[in-house]
Amino acid sequence: MDVFVNLTLSGLSTGMMIFLVASGLSLIFGLMGVLNFAHGSLFMWGAYAGVWVFARTHSFTLALLAGMAAGAMVGWVMERLTIRRIYGNVVAQILITTGVMLVLNELLSATFGPNIIATTVPPLLAGSWAFGNIVVVKYRVFTIVVGFLVALAVHFMLSRTRVGIIVRAGVENQEMVQVLGINIRQVFSLVFVFGSALAALGGVMMAPAIGAVNSGMGIENQMLAFIVVVIGGMGSFLGSALGSVIVGLAGAYTAWFFPEASLAVNVVLMALVLLLKPNGLFGMGGE
């Protein structure tokens, strides 16, 4: 039982972390149909910016803000210079964002060097509570809370605000939204920048959890985010959230019970979902 609770907590917190990365991806793909292969790079820029600011100011709040600002800024420039030119052309989008990924990653390694940079959990969130045999790591609780808050905030934004209505309408029918006098391009840019900031937020949150940032973390987490989005269904925000939790929990349980299988479990999960329900658990129907 204790083991079960511990594993569930750890899985949930991993899932929430993946969710932060995947939510931006899911939003951008859902609305714009842009599969952003540079998403992991935005995540990494967030992580590096967060670590850099945290090392200098020792304020995690500032690190979070700086990371999100870095992600939003890079996302904005990227959207302006590249993505804006190729809406609707799926292949070109994949190709372009891959190129952007190369440049962004290499810029990071040119600035910070190729080595791992260590970081620590902020003192306020360090340590853990123990209830008998159940150990609750504070930072894990923090990630779960942040994940839930972000999920709630985005859900609220999508379902209750004017921007959210426009975004959802844009997913359904872009031309109709345009006809109603709304500049859908501007909304696209906004969503892209917002999604980039979410990816970067995921990066800032992830860095203390694994204790370091390195140049491989972008592609790793991007892949997890992809797997989550595939499992949850393209364009479904709720699906991405559920997919993240499933992947997080599955990872935690298999790592404990069948350590050999833990590396394969994500790919196997994804293959299963694709076989049984090719559009994902909450997919909006493919073509």
């Binding site: 599969l35 994949i94 790919v267 694709l274 559009n279 073509e287």
Partner: peptide, 28 residues
């Protein structure tokens, strides 16, 4: 068969995941 039935964009992601899976096997 797993990936091309849905959308082309899936192919990019799923091939990436499978390649990473085999890479992990090669490493571990």
């Amino acid at each position: 068969y797993l990936s091309l039935r849905v959308k082309d964009v899936y192919y990019a992601m799923i091939t990436l995941a499978f390649a990473e899976f085999f890479l992990i096997i090669a490493q571990k």
